[in-house]
Computed example of a mutant assay.
Amino acid sequence: MKQALVFATNNPNKIAEIQEQLGDRYVFRSLKDIGCTEEIPETADTLEGNARLKARHVRDNYRQDCFSEDTGLEVYALNKEPGVGTAHYAGPHRSAEDNNAKLLSELGPRKDRLARFRTVICLVQGLEEQLFEGICEGRIATCPLGKDGFGYDPVFVPTEGDGRTFAQMSRAEKARFSHRARAMAKLEHYLKRQQDAAHPSV
């Protein structure tokens, strides 16, 4: 029997990335699928805190085990900003174009453009909570490049790549380096261990 998973988001880009990675191994549902239409507050001052808030909201109000993620872009020359404020760096309207423009403006002509993406996933099953982290080191380009991806993908160049931004890569190429994919791989490994323990081979 496939394990049911609720992902505490309605972001279609994140859903597509996770669905592609999970494939048909799980019964996958979004917030919309379980009837959760309210805005879940993200008021914590850490990625871990926001991931926990979203996952716990679903568990407490909808009685569904779920996982949630929060992702931050940390630019070293900017004291790891935008960090927990990544999604609304340029304002509450959460415009990716405006966020990228502000980031490039804040960096200006600096040569130190090192940065990293960090994703934290919180899995809530009943009263149990588990955290999984994925990190992708890279640098910020001097201008947006590429038309695929979302968020800061047009300005983020992963260190392990070939010099292209995430937005210049296909989804499969991005998954090789993606912070979110790495955090998801840890979540998958944990769930598989649970399944193996519950159904040991004879």
Results as ranks from 00 to 15, higher is better:
Met1His: 09
Met1Ile: 06
Gln3Thr: 14
Leu5Gln: 02
Val6Cys: 12
Asn11Asp: 08
Pro12Asn: 03
Asn13Asp: 10
Lys14Ala: 07
Ile15Ser: 09
Ile15Arg: 12
Glu17Arg: 08
Ile18Phe: 11
Ile18Glu: 00
Ile18Leu: 13
Ile18His: 00
Ile18Arg: 00
Gln19Ala: 08
Tyr26Thr: 00
Ser30Leu: 02
Lys32His: 04
Asp33Arg: 00
Asp33His: 00
Gly35Met: 00
Thr37Gln: 02
Glu38Lys: 02
Ile40Tyr: 03
Ala44Lys: 15
Ala44His: 15
Asp45Arg: 02
Thr46Ile: 12
Leu47Lys: 00
Leu47His: 02
Asn50Ile: 04
Leu53Cys: 03
Leu53Met: 14
Lys54Cys: 05
His57Gly: 10
Asp60Arg: 12
Tyr62Trp: 14
Tyr62Arg: 13
Tyr62Pro: 06
Arg63Leu: 09
Gln64Tyr: 01
Asp65Pro: 07
Cys66Thr: 08
Glu69Asp: 15
Glu69Pro: 01
Gly72Asn: 08
Leu73Asn: 06
Asn79Gln: 12
Asn79Ser: 14
Gly83Val: 07
Val84Phe: 11
Val84His: 05
Gly85Lys: 14
Tyr89Asp: 06
Ala90Leu: 00
Ala90Glu: 01
Gly91Val: 15
His93Val: 04
His93Asp: 14
His93Leu: 13
His93Lys: 14
Ala96Leu: 15
Ala96His: 14
Glu97Pro: 04
Asn100Lys: 06
Lys102Glu: 08
Lys102Arg: 15
Glu106Gly: 13
Leu107Asn: 13
Pro109Ala: 10
Arg110Lys: 11
Arg110Phe: 01
Lys111Cys: 14
Asp112His: 11
Arg116Pro: 09
Arg116Asn: 15
Phe117Asn: 08
Leu123Glu: 01
Leu123Phe: 08
Gly126Ser: 09
Leu127Gly: 01
Glu128Thr: 12
Glu129Phe: 02
Glu129Leu: 03
Gln130His: 12
Gln130Lys: 15
Phe132Val: 08
Glu133Tyr: 03
Gly134Ala: 07
Ile135Trp: 00
Ile135Phe: 00
Cys136Met: 12
Gly138Pro: 09
Ala141Phe: 11
Pro144Ser: 09
Gly146Arg: 07
Gly149Pro: 05
Gly149Cys: 12
Gly151Met: 04
Gly151Cys: 10
Pro154Gly: 10
Val155Cys: 10
Val155Asp: 07
Val157Asn: 08
Val157His: 03
Asp162Gln: 07
Gln168Tyr: 14
Arg171Cys: 10
Glu173Asp: 08
Ala175Pro: 00
Arg176Phe: 03
Arg176Tyr: 05
His179Val: 03
Arg180Gly: 04
Arg180Gln: 04
Ala181Arg: 09
Arg182Pro: 04
Arg182Asn: 09
Ala185Ile: 01
Lys186Val: 04
Leu187Ala: 01
Leu187Phe: 04
Tyr190Asp: 03
Tyr190Ile: 05
Tyr190Trp: 09
Lys192Trp: 12
Gln194Glu: 13
Gln194Val: 08
Ala198Glu: 14
Ser201Val: 15
